[in-house]
Design a protein around this nucleic acid. Structure first.
Ligand code: MN
Ligand code: MN
Ligand code: ZN
Ligand code: ZN
Lengths: 126, 126
DNA sequence: TTATTAATGCAACTTAGTTGCAAAAATAGA
DNA sequence: TCTATTTTTGCAACTAAGTTGCATTAATAA
């Protein structure tokens, strides 16, 4: 597959990410777009957007895929390295504006680090 | 279900954990014990051992369950807070002997933190 | 021994995600 | 334009991890 085309489906997903500050789960996206496109298409476009550095992927507390917009990433340079927070009550999931430092481990080469915090969000604390 | 009984199945799992310094995936355990007990039993015993503070659970890079022996935890006090490492080449997964500090996030209550490092282990570096 | 409780096996189910392939849509070339 | 080629999409079937309900077995207590 050579040249990539900017299709309607792709734009639908882009729009959703542009309009949301929170992270979105693949499950949720499949559900929300269910009338517009097939779930296979959703997964394929998500993968493509990750490759292009538009969004980044991580695993939520149940082990399923979550996605959020990248700030300053490109296809060749995924620089986002921050922890994520997921609310145990409402499920809201956010990118945290903290720099995550990669611990050094002797005799190991570390490629990537992922940190997930679980707790209660602002709304659910009350 | 009231009083818990120490059965053969339970002891089989305990033995495996005592003999291994690495973390073990549920998948692997189900496979290894496949002739001795049903996978449902494996999952149930793993859950029980977590409740009792004998082992702790975390998600590997593919989002599946991993387990490792606890050092100083009890049923009421899971104190283990350390990152985990998973080798992208051979899959070997280890508890890291580092204290993980929970970042404070304003207006959020953090209950737990999980950190997963992915890279190459000692053996796969060469 | 008999009653009670806990552990196990098994089959069926659930759910997130993947795959293969055919159809549709977009683009390029003549 | 008409046609060939490439890319995207839909669909159905599949995979794999984990769960559930329920009947059976094993252990313990009365
Ligand atoms: Mn993020
Ligand atoms: Mn550990
Ligand atoms: Zn919440
Ligand atoms: Zn390795």
């Amino acid at each position: 597959m050579g040249i990539k085309r900017k299709t309607k489906s792709l734009n639908s997903l882009l729009e959703i990410f542009e309009q949301s500050d929170e992270a979105l789960s693949a499950i949720d996206l499949v559900e929300r777009l269910n009338s517009k496109m097939n779930k296979t298409t959703v997964y394929r476009i998500l993968e493509r957007l990750v490759d292009e550095g538009v969004i980044h992927a991580f695993k939520g507390k149940e082990g399923v895929q979550w996605y959020a917009r990248c700030k300053d990433c490109t296809a060749s340079n995924h620089t986002d390295l921050h922890p994520h927070f997921q609310c145990r009550d409402c499920g809201k999931t956010e990118c945290l504006d903290l720099q995550l430092s990669m611990p050094k481990v002797s005799n190991h080469r570390i490629d990537s680090a992922e940190m997930l915090l679980v707790g209660q969000c602002e709304d659910c604390l009350a």
